[in-house]
Structure formats: structure tokens, C-alpha cells
Simulated assay, not measured.
Amino acid sequence: MNKRLFALAAACACGAANAQSSVTLYGVVDVNVEYVNHVGAVPQAGNGYNPGPPQTVFRENSGGYSGSRWGLRGVEDLGGGLKSIFVLENGFNADTGTLQQGGRMFGRQAFVGLDTRFGVFTFGRQYQSIFSTMANFVPARYATQYEPTGVVAGANFRQDNTVKYSGTFGPFTAQADWSFGVGTTLPSTYPTVPTAGGAGEVPGQFRRDSAYGVALSYLAGPVGLGIGYDQWNPTIGTGNGTFKKAVVMASYAFNDTAKLMGGYRWGQNKDPGGTTILRDDFYWIGGQYRFSSALDFTLEYDYQNVKNLGGNNGVANPWQIALIADYAFSKRTDVYLTTAYSRNAGLAMESAASGFATSLALGNSYALANGQKSMFGAALGIRHVF
């Protein structure tokens, strides 16, 4: 019996040694010092939707150009063209050492899946399909500080309880996702716009806080094209709303020096009774320019046409222009200057039409104070990638 057990253990050890597997530790630490003017409090029911008087802010932040994070990425070759994969990615505030994403241990991403000949199937907390696809078409590359990610992709751009598929076929990449419960909540920041969202996955309420989306991109040579659709069904009162977004986008690269990008996003949010909470159109255009092997610039212009906000058809349309200069000391360490000017909204296009999603997520207000129409911000930071 002992000989047979020893032989079995040896065979298992040999099999483990022959299997090709790896686990990679990676991360980013990004900290900057920032100046912002005309800052008020995020309007909510508790303060009577009153942002208060304007303040000038000097502060240290985490995640100006990239969100500070660390993660584990693993892969095991199972043979026959099949691999198992996982990602656990933590988001943290480098200035305070605290967790981001509502205190989640792995709030940025946490999923496991299979990489097959037909595509990649993953299960867990993941990015929605249109967010992943737009990464190739947004000039600022989701730079955390002033990028209006929550406006263009929706506050549900990260989703709990998600099944996702991604497949690449030549120049085409197709993605699709379904969330059984997004896990995002947007508090009321405007008197006629209710709180939306919740935990989801409630027995007997399959639609509650669910979401789904699809996206398709084409990248060949200098040309890039993309389309996508996303729908989130957040809890509103005792029912479910319907938040829809559709996007088209394009890019064109000029050798390795410059790239032009732009897109259009249609949006419509309705409450459980079908009343419009928000109807808007969002446009962006900009580009990236590599001045040298160490220095590059990014310019992005964003415009939001707010057609209806909680029954108000006369909302001033927000817009923003942002400029980023980045200088690399090495492949792992760089310094950057990021600046932005916004009109009819705070930086990152923060307004009631966005639910002040960026301010609430980061814990730093970019809400416009009473009597203000514009905001300017600038931040000087350092980033190290490992």
C-alpha cells in the first residue's frame, strides 16, 4: 500500500511540474499634488442640494494619471488549447493607505475564467464591455483625475457578479457581459432624480440591479472603429429603472507619433414608471502626440448635451478640455502634469447629470459651488509601475 501511495504522489508531483503555470504580481503607485478652484460640496438631500460657497483647494491625491493598485494575475496551461486564468486587483489610496471602491479588498477586478480557442469566458467583478472597448478610443486613457468615465460609460463601468465573454478574430474583437447584480448605488444629487442602484441578486427579483452589454471593435493598421451598447436596471424605490447607453467611436494613427480619437454616446435613463430621469448625448474628440521617446502629450475635449434632467429641459450643457503632459524617466517611473478646465460642470464633467459619480467614488469633490459656472484644476504627480 505504501509503495502504491508513493508512486501516486510521485506521479502527481511530476504532473504539477510539467504543467505550465504562472502568477504575476503587478501594480501602480501614483500620487500628485493638486490645485482646484470654485469647489463646493456634492449636492445631496442631507445638505438640501446646496453645494455651498466656493472654496480653493490644495490637496494631495492618489491616482492622477493611473489609479493606484496592486494585483495578482495567474494562468495555467491545461493543454489542448485551454488555459485557466484569474485576476485579483486591489485599488488603494496611496496618500492614506486606505482601500478604494467602497472598501472592497479587490475592488478594481476579481475574476476567474477559461481562455479557450473560441474566446475568453470570465466570472466575477469585471469591467463592462463598452468600457473595455472604449479604452482604445479615449485620448486620456481613463486618466483617473479628470476623465469623465462615469459620464461616458455610466457609473456601472465596474460590475459585480458578472459573466463576460471576449473573443478576437483577426482585426475584430467582440465582447459581451451579463451582471446578476451590479453592486453600484447612485444617491440622489438633484431634487427630481431619485437614488438608483443596490446590491442586486435578490431571490425572486431576477431583473433587480442586473445589467448587460455588448461591444465590437475593429483595429487594423492605422484605423480603429468601435460600437457598443449597455443597459443597467437599477433599483429605484420598489421597482427597477432602465439606464441605456449606445456608443460609436473611431481612431486613426499617424505612424507611431500621433493618434486622433473621437466618439458619440447616446444615453437615456428612465424610472420604473417610464418617466425620463436623464436624456443626454455625449461627444468627445482629442489625440495623443509623442514628442520624443520620453515625452508625450494628450489633449481631450468633452461635451455633454443634456436634453432632459428630471423634467428640466433647460440645463446648461457641460463641456471640458483637458491636457496631460507625461515625461518618462524609465519604463517604470514617470512624472506628469494634468490640467483641465470645465464649464457648466465641475472637473470630470461633475454635475447632477452625472450623479457626481467621480466625486463620490474618489472622495474628493469636484462639484461647482453656488454662483460658479467654471472650474480649473492642475496636478503635478509621480507614477511608478511595477
Rank of each mutant, 00 (worst) to 15 (best):
L5I: 10
A7W: 13
A17E: 15
A19G: 05
Q20C: 05
D30A: 10
V31G: 15
E34T: 12
Y35H: 15
V36I: 15
N37T: 10
G40P: 01
A45R: 14
N47Q: 06
G48C: 06
Q55M: 14
V57L: 12
S62G: 07
S62I: 01
G64C: 14
G64Y: 04
G71Q: 04
G74D: 10
E76K: 09
E89C: 03
N90C: 05
N93L: 10
N93E: 09
A94V: 08
R108Y: 13
V112W: 11
V120M: 06
R125G: 03
Q126Y: 04
I130R: 01
F131S: 07
V138W: 04
E147C: 13
T149L: 12
T149Y: 06
V151K: 07
G154I: 01
N156S: 12
N156T: 13
R158Y: 09
R158Q: 08
V163C: 10
Y165P: 01
Y165G: 00
G167Q: 05
F169R: 02
F169C: 01
D177G: 08
W178H: 11
F180R: 13
G181I: 00
T184L: 08
P187T: 10
S188F: 03
P194I: 01
G197S: 08
G197K: 03
G200V: 00
G204M: 08
R207T: 11
R208T: 09
S210Q: 06
V214Y: 07
G221C: 10
V223Y: 06
V223F: 14
L225M: 03
D230S: 15
Q231D: 08
W232H: 11
I236Q: 02
T238R: 12
G241Y: 00
F243Q: 01
F243N: 02
G267L: 07
K270E: 14
I277L: 14
R279F: 11
F282L: 07
F282C: 05
Y283M: 10
Y283W: 13
G286P: 07
S293G: 14
A294E: 08
Y301Q: 04
K307N: 14
K307P: 10
N312H: 05
N317G: 13
N317P: 13
L323T: 06
I324A: 04
D326G: 02
A328C: 09
S330F: 03
A345N: 00
G346N: 04
E350Q: 12
A361G: 04
G363A: 09
A367F: 00
N370K: 07
G371F: 01
K373E: 12
S374H: 14
R383Y: 02
